[in-house]
Design a protein around this nucleic acid. Structure first.
Lengths: 335, 335
DNA sequence: TAAATGAGTGCAATCGTTTGCGTAGCTCGT
DNA sequence: ACGAGCTACGCAAACGATTGCACTCATTTA
């Protein structure tokens, strides 16, 4: 700007006003300045702009914290956030917590310093203190949780409809003739785990089936599934179906069940939750609950931007639930 | 700082120096100021710091451009970049090009404005002009390419050893008794496609086998693989093995081959390239070339930071090749 | 003809830090 | 007693932009 001002024999203030189309600058000057700027491809220094406006205007940087990156669901969410953010003129700063509370705190600190306008976060499994989140809010940085929400905070959030998703999936199993449905869930201290279990339980009740505690296990990964499933299948009163908290676990079950010589889905039905890459790779392909990570990401970004731009009130926690969808494939019977 | 200065009756300059441990401030004052700052948890305004230093010092923001986010290899790379960057005090701004040239240009522009200290990028498939990259370099923003490098630019880059990876994989097929090995590759205008094909060809030659053009196809995704493989398998002189340019394609081949009633790996061997999620989900599990995305990401970040911090010269293009590793599983025979 | 109006500019402060330079006050040597 | 030298600090400019206010003319109005 200084250069432009010098070359055109005007003051920096005039240049500034001309470039921002201020009506108080005469037409000819304005156009001359704009043209000169264009020709010398001038563009404003964001840093300086931000410093100037730091009191009033937030930056356009959204902080995103993910527990891990190499993970289908989180990738989808990141994808959704990126799409929504970039479409609305924001960019994203991504950091992964590695499921570590300490790292999460560090990241929050760093993002605060770097003046993000808000943060979209899924808690680390480790996290049981929330001071860092509170501190952010007290510094005026709005927070939106996704997936793993913070139960102690009444913050804005986006989650999938775990309850109904599971309910529908289990109903589908029952309606296709399954009577003894095993449930492999995540540890119950996670909200999503509880919701999915409730969906399972209520679906059984709705169809007049009883809940057999012997069919319920805490198991949310493939290794564990492969370890515990053989015993499950060898018991006299073995299950004729499995509902797993995620696709990975379902794949573990599938591989064991096949190895033991059961036919899927004729003897054993299996249903997962995610609908990631895995679901169409296994044989038969996996019936699963589509988790719509991209949609979750978009909603989260939408809320955050709403909060930042004042469309949404910061006093009220916006809570959105993304509907799931059952994708029926080869590991369950058709009607 | 102003507040601290006022409260302690000194000038802002003194506060600044005290906080940066300048020896020209008396011990007592320095400690008093530091303590006061700590107690009122003061931390410097990065924006202002950057503005002040904008002439000399680069920011600590690394721009990362990925063609897509929901993709195993790119996720791994992102993971590697994030790890290396955060370990060395940088943060990453992530944007996806959606394989679109125009979007890529926009992103470069935006990142330039946002004063990233450098950019790590894999080109969109679309991209055939390179002005935007040249423009960045001319603005002093160093570039590091990964995966899809820009052949027209002599820029720093990290790629996997496609040639040797393929060579070893095909050798393994031959050594386990395969004689007619089909090759499904990506379009030959991509450098990685060419290298993999060369690895295939040279491995055949090395083992005294002839290259049969009838066994070579352009095919790099599952849908196409499922479409063209039946014909391939029905010809009189059908292949007894497949090498596919990525796991996804290999899975497509596997599903067709199984459906046609061939046994894997007894009648047909299959080898992929990536070693992503899919590889351990299919049945039998996929023999594949491990692409080590995380390592690629780390190397890329390492180069970029080297360039930024001056450890590496900007005049010389740093080119690194990440070694691949053959992971033998169930879709190929063992020795 | 003097005063009021208003369009078009420039000055200077500001955002929060850093830093070159100047200087007050002290000690010390001669 | 006076200048040199040193320590410890403050002043003010700078980074690149924005903006309230004042100012200069030319034009209109009474």
């Amino acid at each position: 700007m200084k250069d432009i001002a010098r070359e055109l024999g005007v003051s920096v203030a005039t240049v500034s006003r001309a470039l921002s189309d201020s009506p108080s600058i005469s037409r000819e000057r304005r156009q001359a300045i704009q043209q000169y700027a264009r020709e010398h491809n001038y563009f404003p220094n964001v840093i300086a702009e931000q410093l100037r406006h730091s009191r009033r205007n937030p930056s356009h940087a959204i902080g995103v914290i993910v527990p891990e990156l190499v993970h289908y669901y989180f990738s989808s969410i990141l994808d959704g956030i990126e799409s929504e953010a970039s479409a609305r003129g924001y960019h994203i700063i991504v950091a992964k917590s590695n499921e570590s509370y300490e790292r999460e705190v560090q990241i929050c600190e760093a993002m605060l310093k770097n003046k993000v306008c808000g943060i979209i976060v899924s808690q680390a499994k480790d996290t049981e203190q929330y001071d860092h989140f509170l501190h952010l809010e007290s510094c005026g940085v709005p927070l939106v949780f996704y997936d793993r929400i913070c139960p102690a905070l009444n913050a804005s959030r986006v989650v999938v409809d775990d309850y109904m998703g599971t309910m529908n999936a289990v109903s589908h199993l029952i309606e296709t003739g399954c009577k003894r449905i095993a449930f492999y869930g995540a540890p119950m201290n996670m909200v999503i785990a509880k919701n999915r279990f409730n969906g399972y339980r209520d679906s059984l009740y709705k169809h007049g089936l009883e809940l057999d505690e012997g069919l319920v296990r805490i198991c949310d990964n493939r290794a564990d599934a492969e370890r515990i499933t053989p015993a499950m299948m060898r018991q006299a009163n073995r299950p004729d179906a499995f509902f797993a908290v995620n696709d990975e676990t379902a794949i573990g079950i599938l591989s064991v069940v096949k190895r033991l010589g059961f036919s899927v889905p004729d003897e054993v039905s299996i249903c997962g939750f995610t609908n990631g890459f895995r679901a169409t790779v296994c044989d038969p392909m996996l019936t699963t609950v589509e988790q719509r990570g991209t949609q979750v990401g978009k909603e989260a970004a939408d809320i955050l931007i709403g909060l930042v731009e004042g469309t949404l009130s910061r006093d009220h926690a916006e809570k959105r639930i993304v509907k799931t969808r059952l994708v029926v494939r080869g590991t369950t019977r058709h009607l």
